[in-house]
């Protein structure tokens, strides 16, 4: 029985790895290496996109599981005491890795890429920070847009994130600063008129 559980673990790990690899869009064979490095150097690696989909379930079962009988439930290698509903592996076509993903406007125009996601105390996603505009990396501005203005289309290739705001509605918003102490302006269609495009702070 122990053996079979370990087998499930490795199977789950393999699936996790496969999911992690396919959801990253590094083109050719360096995929494997990327996963390894990403784990080793969480700070500098494109880690956010890797661990999210699947690898979570894998480390726990190593520790002594406090579960009585497992055999009947093969698909989940990690029955926790506290969490009644164990996480299932995610299908690649059901999820959207966020970081670095292109954001399109309503008309399909390229607005920029997601560089950060802001969550509140409860872990709810409140805003996505988009690196907006610019040419060859010059002149872009980071702007936080309201999370609920985003629509997600898993499996849509390069068009997975669509924002319900146009360029004109975003452009005048105050730039997002990581070090901003008190307030972060979040752009929504409603705020678009408030910051007159003629008078930005920088």
């Amino acid at each position: 029985m122990k053996v079979s559980r370990r087998r499930w673990c490795t199977a789950a790990f393999a699936v996790a790895l496969a999911v992690a690899c396919t959801t990253r869009n590094v083109p050719t064979e360096p995929d494997l290496a990327s996963v390894e490095l990403g784990d080793g150097m969480p700070d500098a690696a494109p880690a956010e996109s890797t661990p999210k989909p699947a690898p979570k379930p894998k480390p726990k079962p190593k520790a002594k599981p406090a579960q009585p009988v497992t055999a009947p439930e093969p698909a989940n290698p990690e029955p926790q005491v506290a969490a009644p509903e164990p996480p299932k592996p995610l299908n690649a076509d059901e999820i959207v890795p966020i970081l670095g993903k292109k954001v399109l406007g309503p008309a399909g125009e390229d607005l920029g890429r997601v560089v950060n996601v802001l969550v509140d105390q409860a872990g709810r996603t409140r805003a996505a920070v988009i690196d907006f505009g610019g040419f060859l990396g010059v002149g872009s501005r980071k702007i936080a847009v309201a999370w609920d203005q985003l629509t997600f289309k898993p499996g849509a290739g390069d068009r997975q994130l669509v924002l319900n705001m146009t360029r004109e509605q975003i452009q005048g918003a105050r730039e997002y600063k990581e070090r901003a102490a008190d307030q972060v302006d979040v752009a929504t269609p409603a705020t678009a008129g408030q910051t007159p495009a003629a008078k930005p702070s920088n």
Partner: peptide, 16 residues
């Protein structure tokens, strides 16, 4: 150029 992004709309990229 960052000011251009903030106020020049669709033309911003071209102007930059």
């Amino acid at each position: 150029t960052s000011a251009l992004t903030a106020r020049a709309g669709d033309l911003a990229t071209l102007l930059i």
